[in-house]
């Protein structure tokens, strides 16, 4: 019961011996799980620790795990003008996510509750666009953006991030809408509820968690996006990842400062991801897995 990999001792052994064995196996599994989890988490932990170090403590061998924490690097980062980058990131992320939901909610309704004729084709069209490599489209996108004066404009990012996340949102929202029981919809219709009431009173309350989960997934992907941001923006509309790569050339040697900036850029999204982790699989497999 405790393990899959351990065969149950079938010979007529002592019950107590078996129990000891079972407990020691469980302990071994626990230790292994925790070693793996900490190994994967270590670079993130190290980022946060380094962010609170004074610059001199960041450069030390052996690495320092104890030090007197300071906020001075965060202050430096904010005085270096991280503000506009943060604003652009927040704006591009939130506006694109709202746009995605506005487009995806009616679309997923037309692919689940009130389906169009060729709903399967449409569904697979959406998912296939997600598989096309973004790099291959950058040349025409750059030239069009240049010609319509959207270069270094945050709205260019809004439009592209919406396109990037729309298929995921359609698939996710559709899988949530399929869970609205047909009987409930029918009962509402028999009671004379119009389309508007049906949507606001019956469907929306049921799919609300789905809307939240889809929005969180869209926020994660839009916030972390770098390729469009670095190629289509320069000074006015640049986002957080672009701010961070500024460290490659100019201040690459300030580790504590870099860690503080990386922490500011990452921690909000990490927390959102932790909250949405149950829905993450659904989003990442385009709704195929639950």
């Amino acid at each position: 019961m405790t393990t899959i990999a351990r065969p149950r001792p079938r010979a007529a052994g002592h019950a107590r011996g078996r129990q000891v064995k079972r407990w020691s196996a469980r302990l071994a599994w626990t230790v292994l799980v925790w070693v793996a989890a900490i190994a994967f988490f270590l670079p993130v932990l190290w980022m946060v620790l380094t962010a609170f170090k004074p610059e001199t403590a960041a450069y030390s061998y052996p690495p320092k795990f104890t030090f007197s924490p300071t906020l001075s690097e965060f202050r430096t980062v904010f005085s270096r003008g991280i503000g506009p980058y943060l604003e652009n990131s927040v704006f591009a992320t939130l506006v694109s996510t709202v746009l995605v939901l506005l487009l995806a909610l009616p679309a997923s309704y037309a692919l689940s509750i009130s389906p169009v004729g060729k709903w399967r084709d449409s569904l697979f069209f959406f998912i296939s666009t997600k598989m096309l490599p973004i790099v291959a489209a950058i040349v025409p996108i750059y030239i069009v953006a240049r010609d319509v004066h959207l270069l270094d404009n945050v709205y260019a990012l809004v439009l592209l991030y919406a396109g990037m996340n729309l298929p995921i949102a359609v698939w996710m929202l559709r899988s949530f809408m399929l869970e609205v029981p047909g009987e409930v919809l029918e009962a509402a219709r028999i009671d004379g509820a119009g389309l508007f009431r049906e949507i606001t009173r019956v469907i929306m309350p049921i799919i609300m968690p789905g809307i939240a989960a889809s929005a969180l997934i869209c926020i994660i992907f839009a916030w972390n996006e770098f390729f469009f941001a670095v190629n289509l923006t320069s000074t006015v509309a640049a986002t957080m990842p672009v701010f961070l790569v500024g460290f490659i050339t100019s201040e690459g040697l300030f580790w504590a400062q870099l860690s503080a900036a990386a922490t500011v850029a990452s921690v909000p999204i990490i927390i959102i991801g932790w909250i949405a982790q149950k829905q993450l699989v659904r989003g990442l497999s385009m709704g195929a897995l639950k």
């Binding site: 460290f247 990386a262 990452s266």
Partner: peptide, 17 residues
């Protein structure tokens, strides 16, 4: 939760670190 964190962190941030 700890294990999935590398996937959530901004890739540019983790790459630089």
């Amino acid at each position: 939760t700890l294990l999935i964190t590398p996937f959530l962190i901004m890739p540019v941030a983790s790459a630089l670190l």
